[in-house]
């Protein structure tokens, strides 16, 4: 199950709507091993495409160095589909290289850049196998430990 706070959920949806009809992408980093998505990082889609996304290679390195320095990992990797359902494509499955990540897909096909609900679904993708999981949206206080 993916547990994510409302503000981060809203930020992912807003990014997807803003970049529609191109695919939007990014990560939510969190402490290594915690499974807590805490730090929202929107990325530029270097492919600038309605059917493909790729993090820019230089920004990718910066992101991973930053996460490394903070003992973080990509807890969520998100992107949008803008004309199809929020389900991993063959390309998504073939290129999924983070076995610990929750792969979040948002579909903006219904309302595009406008107000309105989106499909927001989460998956594990390991060795080509897709497993959908529940998404629980909580207020920020609930996702953090009390330390």
């Amino acid at each position: 199950m993916l547990t994510i706070d409302q503000a981060t959920y809203d930020a992912i949806v807003a990014h997807a709507k803003r970049d529609h009809p191109d695919e939007a992408c990014g990560v939510v980093a969190g402490p290594e091993g915690s499974d807590r998505p805490e730090r929202f990082v929107a990325m530029v889609n270097a492919a600038g495409s309605p059917t493909f996304y790729e993090f820019d290679s230089t920004e990718l390195l910066q992101l991973y160095k930053e996460m490394d320095a903070r003992d973080e990992e990509p807890v969520v990797i998100y992107h949008s589909h803008t004309a199809t359902e929020a389900y991993p494509s063959r390309t998504d499955i073939g290129l999924a290289m983070e076995p610990n990540a929750h792969y979040v897909l948002v579909s903006t096909r219904e309302h595009g850049n406008n107000e309105g609900p989106v499909e927001f679904r989460s998956y594990r993708i390991i060795d080509g196998e897709v497993t959908e999981e529940d998404v629980t949206v909580v207020t920020q206080a609930d996702t953090r430990s009390t330390d």
Binding site: E23, C25, V27, M43, A47, S49, P50, T51, F52, Y53, E54, F55, S57, L60, L61, Y64, P74, I77, H79, H81, T82, A83, T84, P88, S89, R90, T91, D92, G94, L95, A96, M97, E98
Partner: peptide, 16 residues
């Protein structure tokens, strides 16, 4: 030297 898999994907069914 740093090795990093691309973070990529998308609705397109065929990889570029």
């Amino acid at each position: 030297v740093v090795v990093l898999p691309a973070v990529a994907g998308g609705a397109r069914d065929r990889m570029p």
